[in-house]
């Protein structure tokens, strides 16, 4: 586990107060017309929230459960001149950077409040805990590694990479090659076993598109999967189309996936989507020498080439 995973609810509480002040200031001074953050939802879990007045900014929360990646909501605000405020932690900033590098939102219309991250907990798992254990985790910071969001386990970017203001101190970063243990397990299977493995997974998918809609790398104006002509993806939820969906979903973000795992987290039926994304990331590192494929680069790995790339014919 990365050293930065020293879950620190106290520090987050301080950041929350600073965040509310900062957002209220931005809204009252008119720097931004809306501020994207989280508020406490119905069951106590944070939900995405869009504060438009200094008064509303008081409802912003920052705690170990603010798992939701907010950057994607910027696409709802593409039109207009308004400046938008947004709070991001490390991975949230990668998502934001993804949209910026894909030129999907103008940087000058953003005011980014960054908060260095000490790790986030999986809201579903925390909600299922007995009261005492939940309190210990949320207030005392006592949490087993299994309680953290999956993405925290491989995080090497806890500090925001994009920010106009950073609230709180930087946390130590731990650089090192990304690990893909599950992919390695699957690679060891025989082709038939792998085909069977993935078929079971895709039979679970209900094709709700939550994984696509939450993905910060899926930002096309019109998704080809929604097109009728040509019909890239059949409407039938039969295994061949299910495979086509997941094949496309992962491959079309190859080299641009930020490994936030939001796709997997929002999946209601538990399709382990990152098994595909991770495979592509692992291969991008192996084939093209990109050491941190999840960190947005000025030119994405598949948007460039070198004469020295592996010889395709020899690959057979």
């Amino acid at each position: 586990m990365p050293k930065s995973l020293a879950l620190d609810p106290k520090k987050m509480k301080e950041a929350e107060a600073a965040l509310r002040t900062q957002a209220a200031k931005l809204l009252s001074e008119g720097t931004v017309t809306v501020f994207l953050g989280h508020e406490e939802g119905w069951d106590g879990l944070p939900v995405p929230f869009f504060a438009t007045t200094p008064e509303e900014a008081k409802r912003l929360v920052w705690n170990p459960l603010v798992a939701f990646n907010l950057a994607k909501y910027l696409l709802d605000r593409l039109t207009g001149e308004e400046k938008v405020g947004i709070v991001v932690n490390g991975c949230g900033s990668l998502a934001l950077d993804r949209l910026l590098k894909d030129r999907r939102f103008p940087r000058e219309r953003l005011f980014v409040v960054g908060i260095p991250c000490t790790g986030l907990l999986d809201p579903d798992k925390v909600l299922a805990l007995p009261d005492e254990a939940r309190q210990a985790a949320l207030e005392g910071g006592k949490a087993e590694p299994g309680l953290f969001l999956k993405r925290c386990g491989w995080c090497d970017a806890p500090n925001p990479v994009v920010a106009d203001v950073v609230l709180g101190e930087k946390v130590p970063e731990e650089a090192g090659p990304q690990q893909y243990p599950r992919v390695e397990e699957i690679e060891k299977m025989s082709p038939a076993e792998r085909a069977a493995h993935f078929k079971t997974l895709y039979e679970k998918c209900i094709r709700c598109f939550a994984c696509r809609n939450v993905c910060p790398a899926c930002s096309c104006r019109e998704c080809s999967l929604d097109q009728w002509e040509p019909l890239w993806l059949g409407k039938a939820t039969v295994p061949s189309e299910q495979l086509m969906y997941h094949f496309i979903r992962a491959f079309d973000v190859a080299g641009r996936c930020i490994r936030c795992g939001e796709c997997e987290r929002v999946c209601s039926v538990g399709v382990p989507l990152m098994e595909l994304n991770d495979k592509l990331m692992k291969d991008i590192t192996e084939l093209f020498g990109v050491q941190r494929p999840h960190v947005p680069a000025d030119v994405e790995p598949l948007g460039q080439w070198t004469e020295g790339d592996a010889d395709l014919e020899a690959a057979h």
């Binding site: 992919v183 699957i186 690679e187 082709p191 038939a192 076993e193 792998r194 085909a195 069977a196 493995h197 993935f198 495979l243 094949f247 491959f251 190859a254 595909l276 495979k279 592509l280 291969d283 084939l287 395709l312 690959a315």
Partner: peptide, 8 residues
């Protein structure tokens, strides 16, 4: 090529 192989 590797992706297809991975998918079986």
């Amino acid at each position: 090529k590797r992706y297809l192989e991975y998918l079986g």
